[in-house]
């Protein structure tokens, strides 16, 4: 049943597979992002409440969604590496962590820049913003742990365990922060209800979201390749690949 997956457990096959995948991902991401961002900046209507500042939405929400899905993907990769001993899975987990951290940082920054004109402050201890901040800490922990080991095989496994512990904790943290937030409702916070999205706003959002998602895929492919060659640097195929100067 799983036979079709077996070739990809071979580092050489998956290295070349990632290499073939990455131009397609990169190009389609560039295309979608160009169209999506121009649409979002120039043609999408302004929100009737928030005016032009609503355009931040088109990067804030995709990166917030991606920051969480990347963590989930990382945890799934870590689980398959620990449970089914798929060696390459923890390489992909390690490849994903810095990407996730960057998108979490983008979600936080754009959230702050959106919050300043809307709420009057850069930072509000809002449940979503706070859990996003904690998510950033979890990512940084995984990255720091991964960097602390010299042996990358070990580093991948250790970071994988931490990612799994984090993913079990994430719902608890999210729930506790939400609960804490309703308890300490700040006086200045006037949360704007999620607006029912008009289709002129919906399509540029979808384009931006998939553009960013494909970008994540492309970057992950390159990082995955880097992880594979550093882990297999004694193998003949890596040596031939590196000395043959062809990318």
């Amino acid at each position: 049943m799983w036979k079709w997956l077996h070739p990809y457990a071979n580092p050489e096959v998956s290295y070349h597979f990632a290499g073939k995948l990455k131009p397609w991902l990169g190009l389609s991401s560039a295309l979608l992002l160009t169209v999506g961002l121009i649409w979002a900046l120039l043609f999408a209507p302004a929100d009737y409440q928030q005016g032009e500042s609503f355009r931040i939405f088109y990067i804030h929400v995709p990166s917030a969604i991606l920051s969480m899905s990347i963590y989930l993907a990382m945890a799934i990769a870590a689980l398959s590496s620990l449970v089914w001993q798929v060696r390459l899975a923890d390489a992909s987990a390690a490849a994903l962590a810095p990407i996730g951290a960057v998108f979490t940082a983008i979600a936080l920054l754009t959230g702050a820049a959106w919050g300043k004109p809307m709420w009057g402050t850069w930072w509000v201890w809002d449940a979503r913003l706070t859990s996003e901040l904690i998510l950033l800490f979890l990512y940084l922990g995984v990255i720091a742990l991964h960097n602390a080991f010299d042996d990358k095989q070990m580093a991948g496994k250790a970071a994988g365990i931490l990612a799994l512990v984090g993913v079990i904790n994430l719902p608890i943290i999210k729930y506790s922060v939400e609960w804490w937030n309703t308890l300490h409702q700040g006086p200045t916070v006037s949360k704007l209800g999620a607006p029912a999205m008009a289709s002129e706003m919906y399509w540029p959002f979808v384009l931006c979201f998939f553009g960013f998602a494909l970008l994540v895929g492309a970057v992950a492919c390159v990082r995955f390749q880097t992880e594979i060659i550093t882990r297999n640097k004694m193998r003949p195929w890596v040596r031939n690949l590196v000395t043959s100067e062809v990318n």
Partner: peptide, 18 residues
Amino acid sequence: GGVLLSLIVLPLYIPVLI
């Protein structure tokens, strides 16, 4: 490992604290 330990453990303590 000291600082690293606090970096990876403290976020997990948040629910208990709250």
